[in-house]
């Protein structure tokens, strides 16, 4: 969808770990629906891990289990991004959630074995484009599944809205939200 070339995306940071079947209602609960994007981010996991959102530091990496992001089409991926997480690596990503990661240009990868390969607070080194994942703390490495080329291009372009804005097909984002 675009031929823009960007510098490779590489993330090195501590990891947080969650389990299988994390659903969108846990990431973006209904009671945060009317809030601003920044406020919504502070509700991530408020039902299952209260207080966690305050502990996340900009650039941290989230590791998930199977079918991460199951559930609704709500902009849950946007909340993970706005919380400051650099990327998400999961055993597997829910198909609809993966779409929203691409839509909002939040780097997310599938990497079988990743859940067992890390303990919370260990350091990861992720090369997004090649899906190379290293555990710096343990000195181990894993190979994830790179995003298909057209989807990678969309992430590199900054997501759907940036693309449409550049093409003059949607109005620039208003300052109100």
């Amino acid at each position: 969808m675009t031929d823009m070339k960007k510098a490779p995306m590489r993330f090195k940071a501590r990891v947080w770990i969650v389990g299988d079947n994390i659903n969108t209602d846990l990431i973006l609960p209904n009671k945060a629906f009317y809030l601003t994007h920044e406020e919504q981010a502070m509700y991530v996991f408020s039902a299952n891990r209260p207080g966690w959102a305050e502990q996340v530091k900009k650039g941290d990496i989230l590791i998930g289990g199977n079918n991460f992001g199951m559930g609704s089409s709500r902009a849950a991926a946007r909340s993970l991004k706005n919380l400051g997480l650099a990327c998400l690596i999961a055993e597997s990503l829910n198909g609809l959630f993966m779409r929203n990661c691409v839509n909002f240009a939040f780097p997310a990868l599938e990497c079988p074995g990743v859940h067992a390969a890390f303990s919370e607070s260990e350091e990861a080194d992720v090369e997004f484009e090649t899906a190379g994942v290293r555990n710096i703390t343990r000195g181990t490495a894993l190979q994830g599944k790179p995003l298909p080329a057209p989807l990678m291009a969309l992430v590199q372009a900054g997501g759907v809205y940036q693309l449409l804005e550049k093409e003059g097909l949607i109005a620039p984002k208003s300052a109100a939200v």
Binding site: S72, N103, V160, Y161, L169
Partner: peptide, 19 residues
Amino acid sequence: GVGGPDIIYAAIKGQTWFR
């Protein structure tokens, strides 16, 4: 079911992608 941005994209371009 797709994301909100997918809907805006499809309304504008008449297309979408599927895996």
